[in-house]
Design a protein around this nucleic acid. Structure first.
Lengths: 113, 113
DNA sequence: CTGAATCCATTAGGATACTG
DNA sequence: CAGTATCCTAATGGATTCAG
């Protein structure tokens, strides 16, 4: 059981972060994306914070980063196998919220898009 | 999709907290427990923090609190139906970690019991 | 375009002491 | 026993600026 608790914490560490789910979902949909594209897609995220969250996701091996090494900087991000495997778990968390969370409480801050 | 993201955040809010999973798992096993018993079961948690987390879980309606109103203070906590429904989700998070998290990284801080 | 560095506000959680 | 109040530290994330 103590073993499981550590794995719970480790998993939570990987997926918690204000914008991580949006990054993961966007990469799951688009397949691949660049820093600027993610920044435009995820409105309201600060430049620094997006860089931080991408770096954490990369450290946890949920996403991979490929630098094209051209004169004009060009970096692409995509899900790793591990990253793809976590998507159904995120879906499960959303689904539980869908049926158990009071919707009146969460209709306040829809992404302004 | 934005809808789902809000439900993800709402769910994460409910289950994130350093000791919440231990509280929920203990109540799931024991059925009911008192403040002091939880404090003895969950080693290392501070008095104040345990009180905080119990209060949050109660606000989110994952647990219920019954005060016996006797001379000698006596309060019992137990899972609500909503609280019971979240246990399989917590299990799913643990299970994902079990198969996808590097065990070398999490064997450091087993609960010292 | 990508990203690192600095400064700042907010929050979670621990230590401790106090109340009924 | 159960809970509250105060003080303190560490970590998260935003605003902004600098660099390659």
């Amino acid at each position: 059981m103590a073993k499981y608790l550590n794995e719970f914490d480790a998993t939570m560490q990987m997926i918690q972060g204000k914008w991580k789910i949006m990054i993961l979902y966007e990469l799951a949909e688009a397949g691949t994306s660049r820093f600027g594209k993610l920044h435009r897609y995820i409105k309201n995220v600060s430049h620094k914070t997006l860089a931080n969250q991408l770096h954490q996701l990369e450290e946890d091996e949920l996403i991979s980063r490929f630098d094209f090494q051209t004169a004009e900087p060009h970096v692409e991000y995509q899900l790793t196998a591990k990253g793809k495997s976590v998507i159904p778990l995120l879906d499960a968390i959303c689904d539980w919220g869908d049926t158990h969370v009071d919707h009146a409480l969460i209709d306040r801050t829809l992404c302004d898009e």
